[in-house]
């Protein structure tokens, strides 16, 4: 965790310094720092994915739903990261578009679950 904090702080310090020299290297440094921190985040996320897949043994959930859940997690993760980078660079319009498209694709991937829910509801009625 200390490694992550140190990378973040060093990146911010250098980015502020480079932005002070009035050129666009502050944004490049911010992007490089984000990519590096993402790298460490992905290692932790793979642990979470293993835990989720190990839950399959206990709960008899269809494999399809867990795959859909992981897909939604991935889409949200990527959309959030790219939107944050775009907002950091100052282009909030692009970042809001990326977030919107992320939400739409999550809605799209959750369609089978909604369908299954409706089936169970109508079968009860």
């Amino acid at each position: 965790m200390i490694k992550i904090a140190s990378i973040g702080i060093i990146t911010v310090i250098l980015a502020v310094f480079c932005k002070g020299i009035k050129n666009e290297y502050g944004i490049y440094l911010a992007i490089a720092g984000c990519v590096m921190l993402l790298y460490l985040a992905v290692n932790r996320l793979s642990g979470i994915v293993d835990i989720i897949s190990s839950f399959k043994g206990y709960i008899t959930i269809d494999n399809l739903y867990i795959v859909i859940l992981l897909k939604m997690l991935g889409i949200a993760f990527v959309a959030e990261v790219s939107a944050a980078i775009c907002r950091d660079a100052g282009y909030s319009s692009v970042s809001s578009l990326v977030e919107l498209i992320g939400k739409l694709s999550i809605l799209l991937t959750s369609a089978p679950i909604l369908e299954a829910l409706l089936d169970t509801v109508f079968s009860i009625i």
Binding site: I7, I10, T11, L14, F17, C18, I21, K22, N23, Y25, Y28, L29, A32, G33, M36
Partner: peptide, 13 residues
């Protein structure tokens, strides 16, 4: 990587 980019930034400016 970050130090290299910062060095390139300073050098170019």
């Amino acid at each position: 990587l970050i130090f290299k980019i910062a060095a390139v930034g300073i050098l170019v400016s």
